[in-house]
Simulated assay, not measured.
Amino acid sequence: MENVCEKLRIIRTLRPMLQERERRLKMLSADIGIDLGTASILVYIKGKGVVLKEPSVVAFDRDTNQIKAIGEEARLMIGRTPGNIVAVRPLRQGVISDYTVTEKMLKYFIRKAVGKRTFRKPRVCVCVPSQVTEVERKAVEDATYQAGARSVSIIEEPVAAAIGAGIDIAKPCGNMIVDIGGGTSDIAVISLGGTVVSTSIKIAGDDFDEAIVRYMRKKHNLLIGERTAEEIKMKIGTCYAKPEVATIDVRGRNLVTGLPKTITFTSDETLEALQEPAMQIVDAVHSVLERTPPELAADISDRGIVLTGGGALLNGLEELIEEKTGISTMTAEDPMSAVAIGTGKYIEFLNNPGADSNE
């Protein structure tokens, strides 16, 4: 009997110490949300917010297979590397196109965000486009595990975007999210924490850049690169008629003479160039609305459409969608970070759903 009492006393003494040890270990391990985008990767850490935002570009030596640069440093190399060094985007249209390079890139970004002083592997939540296949989803999961995650959760981009935009998705009412990234645009109607109707189209920010490159080649016989097209899009790009015409000087190579040439490009010309990809996004929004149950459609009509993602920053997109659908359209407060914030908040909820009640 004395032995039993002694054991119980030891257990009671050790329990607070073990609980404190577990609490400290939890603090030392990070919960990470990753927005694995075609154009850029954002990393969200619990309690710190978005700590890292870099282009999802890797530069490596083709001869030795050695990685030379990752992120912003690699992006600056696009179109400016010698033959043996290649700057690539290992993610195409929201999914992994080069598994090995993606794994190394993820490992680099996780280590950079968390730091080396971590005692436990982090729990990671990664977002994927809404229409990905099981094989593509598994590839993302495996690459994240190989990059050093302790556990991996997968969330669909529109759900993460809605959470990051501050929408209470748990309520039984319809919310429409249009998330325009670099490689894909995800359109979804969300209610009671899940997707009711959704579609994912491979038309997004990169296609806007390509449309400008094609327009320049066709109308001005001028060859420009991806970075120049992106700069034009960000500075004067529009997909809705503007009262004031903005201009920008563009340098490229004349396709007739083969010599460098500078032209003045106007915002009206970007309107013409971007009309086709912008209308494809509007058509996708229209098709999702057609398939939405009437009760939820009524909610969306009252609450409006919310735009997230870097592509949502394109001038005139709000007005174009509003004009074509008749539903008020607004851009989230921080559209670039909305998916990363939502992914991070989702993993916080998954790993500690009753935290508030226990504390």
Rank of each mutant, 00 (worst) to 15 (best):
R21G: 00
G47L: 05
A273L: 04
N65I: 02
V57C: 12
T264Q: 07
L255Q: 08
G94V: 14
C5V: 04
C125Y: 01
Y108C: 05
A273C: 06
Q146E: 08
N3D: 13
I224C: 06
M77R: 13
L313V: 08
A59M: 05
K48A: 14
P172C: 01
L42D: 04
I263P: 09
L18V: 11
C5N: 12
I169P: 05
C125E: 02
I236Q: 02
T228V: 14
R89A: 11
S328D: 08
Y346W: 12
N358E: 13
V250Q: 05
G47R: 09
S198D: 04
A278Q: 02
M336V: 15
K324G: 06
A340S: 14
I41W: 00
A211V: 06
G148W: 01
R227P: 01
S151T: 12
K345F: 03
L296A: 06
T184M: 07
N65L: 12
E72Q: 15
G342D: 10
A312V: 08
A147M: 06
G193P: 01
V101A: 07
I78K: 12
L314I: 13
V114Y: 01
A147S: 09
M234V: 09
G258I: 03
I212S: 02
A87H: 11
M1F: 03
I67F: 11
E319T: 13
T100D: 13
S191T: 12
T38K: 06
D249K: 15
V339S: 04
M279Q: 12
D249L: 15
R21Y: 00
R62M: 13
S56L: 09
R111P: 04
E276M: 03
T195E: 11
I248C: 04
C125F: 02
D98V: 10
T325V: 07
S97P: 01
L259T: 15
T13M: 13
L289T: 09
E231L: 09
T325Q: 08
R117I: 09
G344D: 12
V256R: 08
G49V: 10
I96M: 08
E322I: 07
K7D: 06
R150D: 11
T264W: 00
E136R: 05
V101D: 03
S153L: 00
V86Q: 10
G252A: 04
E72V: 07
S287I: 03
I85H: 07
R9P: 00
R150W: 00
E290A: 13
I67R: 12
M330G: 03
A139Y: 02
R24A: 11
I155R: 03
G309P: 10
G33N: 05
H286W: 00
I305Y: 03
A241S: 07
G309N: 12
V58F: 05
L18H: 02
A298Q: 00
P82S: 15
P335A: 07
E323G: 04
M234H: 14
G354R: 11
A30I: 01
P90K: 08
R117V: 07
A161S: 13
N84V: 06
G37W: 00
